[in-house]
């Protein structure tokens, strides 16, 4: 049995410890917002947060997450109101949408560690998240907007 905390909820799963975390999240727990893309950590569609870091769940064995805190796209915010989600909606970022949960989870780590990222920071953080529709320009714009929203929200607190 492996104990996991996913989106602040405790789970006990009876799976092979070598099973990829992505399979556990999608097929065992049933949270399907996180996507399978390449299966070899090359595309970023499967990014979730493990103890705050943007790990690629397709190559992360579930035993690594034992006792850890996992956040998926479903848990990024309580009301889908994370500054990034607001910016993504405002700018209609997704096209097909398949890669976007991974994009958002990667961008969330960037914004947490650098509340005012420049283009170079965005490139460094996001270059590993591939979008076949080519929404990169809107993603970049949305991250800048989200940073602005985050700053305003934090000033209003």
């Amino acid at each position: 049995m492996i104990n996991l905390t996913i989106n602040q909820k405790a789970y006990e799963v009876d799976v092979n410890p070598d099973m990829p975390l992505l399979w556990v999240i999608r097929d065992v727990i049933g949270l399907v917002g996180t996507k399978y893309g390449c299966g070899v950590a090359q595309c970023g569609a499967c990014v979730v947060h493990l103890n705050g870091e943007a790990v690629r769940s397709c190559v992360t064995k579930v035993k690594r997450a034992q006792g850890g805190k996992i956040t998926t796209i479903e848990g990024l915010s309580e009301k889908n109101d994370h500054p990034l989600q607001k910016a993504w909606i405002e700018l209609d970022v997704p096209q097909c949408g398949y890669c976007q949960s991974g994009q958002l989870m990667s961008a969330a780590v960037l914004l947490r560690e650098n509340p005012n990222p420049g283009d170079e920071d965005i490139d460094a953080a996001m270059a590993g998240n591939i979008c076949r529709c080519g929404t990169y320009l809107r993603i970049r714009k949305a991250i800048h907007l989200a940073a602005e929203i985050q700053r305003k929200e934090s000033n209003n607190k």
Binding site: A41, V47, E53, A54, V55, R56, V59, M105, S106, A107, V109, L110, E113, N114, D121, A124, A125, M126, A127, G128, N129
Partner: peptide
């Protein structure tokens, strides 16, 4: 750095 830390992959 950021979302591209070595141990993420």
């Amino acid at each position: 750095v950021y979302a591209a830390k070595c141990s993420n992959c």
